[in-house]
Nucleic acid binder design. Structure first.
Lengths: 89, 89
DNA sequence: ATACTATATGCGCTATGGCGTATATTTACT
DNA sequence: AGTAAATATACGCCATAGCGCATATAGTAT
């Protein structure tokens, strides 16, 4: 039985990505300013990214994820409940 | 039990993302031009994204992944042993 | 209410991503 | 080898991401 990893960290849109980042940041107990420093960005940029209403650069997102000790993974989009996922590539 | 997480779908850097995209595209039997049309981008842009040497916009990457029926997921960075920390960007 | 922190916005500016178009280069197939 | 397709680059142009800096708004406490 395949174990579906964690369904809530799905990141298809900038908004979803922003929400995930914000949640992770708060979980770390960091302010936007603190995260910005670690990611090499500004507080305002973190704010924009977390809201997800304005486009962002891939590098900025990757920097933020790295600062939060997170990372992207790529998987298939349409995933039935208990299907095996492995060997996509 | 089969929680095997395909190691090659790790996407920490633009280069890794590009490689994943290229592999998925070829698996679909598409040319860069075909993928570009489906993603609303140009062939040249797909080329740049797949190489990963030049920065890209998040939206472009998300569009490409969607065209390939793929998606990002966010997970913890340090998972399991033997993490090879590569340089970021 | 007051004071303080955190987050959201605004403006001008610079850097650059992606476009259109075109061409060079590589790869695949006779 | 020769031809065609696929991919990598190039150039000018426009749109915009993120910056520095500042301020406004929203929370969070005394």
């Amino acid at each position: 039985m395949a174990y579906i990893y964690c369904m809530s960290n799905l990141a298809r849109t900038p908004k979803q990505i922003g929400t995930i980042i914000q949640r992770a940041r708060k979980k770390c107990g960091w302010t936007q300013t603190q995260l910005a420093e670690r990611a090499g960005l500004r507080q305002g940029t973190i704010s924009v990214i977390e809201k997800g209403d304005k486009p962002a650069k891939l590098d900025s997102i990757l920097a933020v994820l790295a600062a939060l000790d997170l990372e992207f993974r790529v998987g298939e989009r349409s995933k039935g409940a208990g299907q095996d996922i492995e060997e996509l590539f």
